[in-house]
């Protein structure tokens, strides 16, 4: 994401914020203080992690974008977890790259699951799940369906394929935060959109998804990204899966154009 130049609003823990807080639009309107920031009453906000400070004036949000390797569970995050064992009502899972030991996945938290029809998962199975409970003092809980619609919505057991490790920032980017961030920057005039000519404008950010777009045009594969820094890829053969996985892992610090080139080279290398 920062391939072109260092971010402008770099903050370190304990810094005073380099930019003024977004002005209140209406009286009593709340402001959202996102990850990486701590609120010290009455009106001080300090960063608690190092990263790039982002402000969205429109939505009145402020947060720090940073990269790391340890995942802290947050509500509604999609994660890739591994089943450890099963007890009477729960599957006990591990969320890779996270500090907490186990996460609980209720047997009934699947689409159309009843006592009799619940999926039988063995230790070592991989599931794509969403965090339904995240608290500082308790083990997180997972669910494999949308509680409102009781549809799976893409969650569930991941069969076959391979897991690849990426950094947390990369995982967020793959899940589409990069695109949002880029739109925000364009709106703020920090970067200009890539011109219609396709020529790269200085400072233009890539969404970070170029690698997946390019792969999607050339190969057929399935992908699931967990916010905990795991990417699951599956395709019809080992070679394709490996090629996709390698491309994604290696594209972390590349610009959009470089990512596309990397994909083309890799595909040639794997002889696909």
């Amino acid at each position: 994401m920062f391939a072109d130049e260092p971010p402008e609003n770099l903050v370190l823990p304990g810094d005073t914020l380099p930019i003024p807080l977004p002005a209140p639009t209406a009286k009593g309107a709340a402001m959202k203080v996102g990850p990486g920031l701590a609120h010290i009453p009455p009106d001080t906000i300090i960063p608690v992690i190092a990263g790039e400070l982002n402000v969205d004036e429109k939505k009145r949000m402020i947060w720090v974008e940073s990269d790391g390797k340890r995942y802290t569970p947050h509500l509604h995050d999609p994660v890739i977890a591994i089943i450890n064992r099963s007890s009477s009502d729960f599957y006990h899972c591990t969320i890779p790259h996270s500090r907490s030991t186990t996460a609980l996945l209720p047997h009934l938290a699947f689409e159309n699951a009843t006592k009799k029809t619940r999926p039988q998962l063995n230790p070592g199975c991989v599931v794509y799940a969403r965090i339904s409970l995240a608290s500082k003092h308790m083990d997180p809980e997972l669910e494999c369906f949308d509680a409102a619609t009781s549809k799976a919505g893409g969650f569930g057991e991941l069969k076959g394929g391979m897991l690849f490790d990426v950094s947390l920032g990369m995982a967020r980017r793959l899940l589409g935060d990069g695109k949002k961030l880029r739109q925000l920057k364009i709106r703020q005039g920090l970067v200009r959109a890539e011109g219609e000519t396709g020529k790269k404008v200085k400072g233009a950010m890539c969404s970070g998804l170029e690698v997946v777009e390019e792969l999607g045009q050339r190969l057929g594969f399935e992908i699931a990204v967990g916010r905990n820094g795991k990417v699951w890829v599956d395709s019809e053969d080992v070679r394709t899966t490996l090629c996709c996985g390698r491309c994604i892992v290696e594209s972390e610090f590349l610009t959009g154009e470089e990512q596309r080139r990397l994909v083309r080279e890799k595909i040639k290398e794997f002889g696909l």
């Binding site: 591990t94 391979m162 897991l163």
Partner: peptide, 28 residues
């Protein structure tokens, strides 16, 4: 207590199959 992460069945199966085809997961 955190433990060394255990590898999933999917990963084990994939790595074995890749090695049979002479491929390593990290591209070496």
């Amino acid at each position: 207590m955190p433990r060394e992460p255990e590898y999933s069945n999917n990963e084990k199966a994939f790595v074995l199959e890749a090695i049979q085809q002479g491929l390593r997961v990290d591209g070496r």
